[in-house]
Nucleic acid binder design. Structure first.
Length: 696
DNA sequence: TTGCGATCCATTTTT
DNA sequence: TGGATCGCAA
């Protein structure tokens, strides 16, 4: 029984008898375990599992919690427990209760689609403000941020445009003008969504939230269904998500678990102050704390605590390590960007051969998915099996989107974004032709008419395929996997030409995966919505599996889970690992040079580093490169606030989180790499950045 | 009108 | 590094 494995404070939290509880749980204090124990406790006390809904930020986290709850109970006791992301849960509500929410048929669109719509709205208009270009992508960001934070357009522009770009010359009139200009675009965007029955990510939550607030009947029906709402990573909820949860507090219990020191989603509108305001927002709620860290050795905690304690913010956090003494974290200095990757690969191989470790003892964390690209190449070369978490998902790959666009037009024949994608997929149809076809297609009354029209009106090399593909999908629209399979057969020839560079190796195998994903669904719309919301990246690990197949040497490790994990820090919350590498802990990355303009963002970067450091159980390795003047910089360990004799160096190091790092906290090493640049190479000197940061 | 090749450019994080 | 954009040939 899982309850027996808890310590005193975890247990107290798990068996809480009051209505609402906030559990403040520091890194490694058993947050996940407590939430699992809570669910198990409720069920064993007689609560029906279908009345429990666990809300998390990633599908992976939800899946893991649910499966561990099930594993802790006798078979089939917890089958109906709900566990999903906020978005996925709201999508289920919209799908299961269409009459409650007034959403009988809709198409979920992702960010790429949003941007595509915005692009068509902007047309050739170039929006500029104070010499800052505002792209369609920026517009979508602004729009989404405003909605996630429930703030008005003027305030959002002030924050996202003026403050983020530090436009000191911005005037009130200028702002009003800009606001009016953007408002036009946003209204058109909303118009378009309505017209095409599109719901973007934010709509999915907003519609449900508004309904809860304005319609007591709907609210009580749903509250009646979900008596216990368990929220993981509560520090990362944003005002929109809170708007969704808040009305439920009357008749459901809210059980929230979080850690303000791990709040790293402010770019999505999260505000860790929601933790501090919890008892204000939820009258009668209690707050418990978990402080014993079971994950890491003391040396690792010392470093993490040091990083966090340098913050001017007071997190009121004392992580008490119970594991005791281990080995000191290592700080590896490399000469140039990316040269740490060969070194890491060698380390891993060494750990396997000399120290009896396995691949899955290793976790590699990076600030950006982008940065680890070369690492993947090194791992492939060295035949190290790995999986990648975070970064661009499976459903975002171009070839997958191509096929899904065909499913989408059959599902909703007014889905113009999908039409354009599907039509231009074919050779000989470009934007102009596709747009002109679209005009007619939108006026036809059903998809069968569209198919016939396309058959009669496309005189191309692929004439029959253009309409045939849609026809076969239509014929198998209640068996999604079959629809995918048949569509694929029709698209294959064009695919192999369009993606000739990496078709066989990289892209083709994905369609088998897509088919498997589709096999659970009997309606195109449900499949499309779910795969848009949870882009499935976590399940496929597509690039990895092939590498393993290719190398006979590594056959034995085919047993599924023995893989090195590569993850962005954002996706790594909740992960832990025996050995953890945090790469590129360099100046201008921690904090990121784009964050330096803003106090809150610097602090968020600090928390980001803190999250990374606290993933390690036994060994923590940081790598960094100190830029062009490597040898000299290495000597540099600027105490905070001091002035270096060298101004550009000082600028580079200013604000760097590892400045003033006490020598006894880490073991430093220097790695000379064979692949580093020769000394006389004139590297781009981008040190003339003004870090005019005001920390008051 | 489409599609390709050359050139430039900026480069966080995610549902 | 790749993506977006632009110009040019078919």
């Amino acid at each position: 029984m899982i309850l027996d494995e808890l310590n005193e404070s975890q247990r107290k939290a798990a068996v809480y008898e009051g209505k609402h509880l906030l559990v403040l749980a520091g890194a490694g204090t058993g947050k996940t375990k407590t939430i699992i124990a809570r669910a198990v406790y409720l069920i064993s006390k007689g609560v029906s599992p279908s009345q429990i809904q666990i809300l998390t930020f990633t599908r992976k986290a939800a899946g893991e919690i649910v499966s561990r709850v099930k594993a802790s109970l006798p078979p089939n006791q917890a089958n109906t427990i709900g566990g999903s992301t906020f978005h996925s849960w709201c999508n289920q509500l919209l799908t299961n209760f269409p009459n409650l929410f007034g959403t009988s048929s809709f198409t979920v669109i992702d960010e790429e689609d949003q941007v595509a719509i915005m692009k068509t709205i902007c047309g050739k208009n170039k929006i500029e403000y104070e010499s800052i270009r505002i792209s369609p992508q920026d517009l979508i960001d602004i729009y989404s941020f405003a909605r996630n934070t429930n703030s008005n357009l003027t305030d959002t522009i002030q924050k996202k445009v003026v403050e983020d770009h530090r436009l000191l010359t911005s005037t009130k009139e200028g702002l009003v003008n800009l606001k009016n200009k953007l408002e036009v675009f946003f209204r058109q965007y909303e118009e378009k969504k309505k017209e095409r029955k599109y719901l973007d990510y934010d709509d999915i939550i907003k519609i449900v939230a508004v309904r809860f607030r304005s319609d007591n009947k709907v609210k009580s029906i749903i509250s009646g269904h979900y008596k216990h709402i368990l929220v993981d990573e509560f520090q990362d909820t944003n005002p929109l998500q809170w708007e969704l949860l808040s009305p439920l507090k009357d008749s459901s219990s809210l059980y929230c678990v979080g850690d303000d020191a791990q709040s790293i989603y402010s770019f999505r509108g999260a505000d860790f102050n929601n933790i501090h305001k919890f008892s204000l927002n939820v009258p009668g709620a209690e707050i418990f704390k978990l402080e014993d860290n079971y994950r890491s050795t003391q040396e690792i905690l010392n470093l993490a605590n040091w990083v966090l304690n340098k913050s001017p913010l007071n997190y009121d956090k004392t992580l008490i390590g119970v594991r005791g003494i281990g080995t000191k974290p290592r700080l590896i200095n490399v000469e140039s960007n990316w040269s740490e990757f060969y070194w890491i690969a060698d380390q891993i191989i060494n750990n396997l051969t000399e120290r009896g470790k396995s691949y899955d003892d290793h976790l590699i964390l990076s600030r950006s998915g982008f940065y680890t690209k070369p690492l993947q190449a090194v791992f492939i070369e060295k035949k190290i099996p790995h999986r990648i978490i975070g970064g661009r998902g499976f459903m975002e790959a171009a070839h997958i989107r191509d096929l899904v666009s065909a499913l989408r037009v059959v599902n909703n024949k007014d889905d113009e974004i999908a039409w354009i994608r599907y039509l231009t997929f074919w050779e000989g149809i470009g934007n102009v032709k596709a747009t002109s076809l679209l005009m007619t297609l939108l006026n036809l009354s059903d998809i069968e008419g569209c198919i016939k029209y396309l058959y009669d009106n496309t005189r191309l090399q692929y004439t029959s395929s253009v309409s045939k593909t849609l026809e076969v999908i239509f014929d198998s629209r209640y068996q999604v996997d079959k629809a995918i399979e048949l569509a694929y057969d029709n698209l294959e020839k064009r695919f192999s030409e369009k993606y000739k560079n990496d078709w066989e190796t990289k892209r083709r195998p994905d369609f088998e995966v897509l088919e498997i994903l589709g096999s659970k669904y009997t309606a195109l719309g449900h499949f499309i919505a779910e795969c848009t919301i949870d882009s499935f990246s976590k399940y496929t690990a597509n690039d990895t599996n092939q590498n393993i197949k290719d190398s006979d040497v590594s056959k034995p490790i085919l047993d599924s889970n023995n893989l090195v994990t590569i993850s962005t820090i954002h996706s790594a919350k909740g992960l832990e690992s025996d050995i953890c590498y945090v790469v590129d802990v360099s100046p201008k990355v921690y904090p990121h040079h784009r964050s330096v303009t803003n106090f809150d963002r610097v602090e968020e970067d600090r928390r980001l580093l803190y999250v990374a450091l606290t993933r390690a159980k036994n060994e923590l390795v940081l790598t960094r490169s100190l830029g062009f003047n490597y040898a000299e910089n290495l000597k540099l360990n600027i105490p905070d606030g001091s002035h270096s004799s060298n101004d550009s160096l000082h600028l580079m190091m200013e604000g760097y989180f590892l400045n003033g790092l006490p020598e006894n906290l880490v073991d430093q090493e220097v790695i000379q790499s064979e692949t580093s640049l020769p000394n006389d190479v004139d590297e781009k000197n981008d040190l003339d950045i003004d870090y005019g940061m005001d920390f008051t």
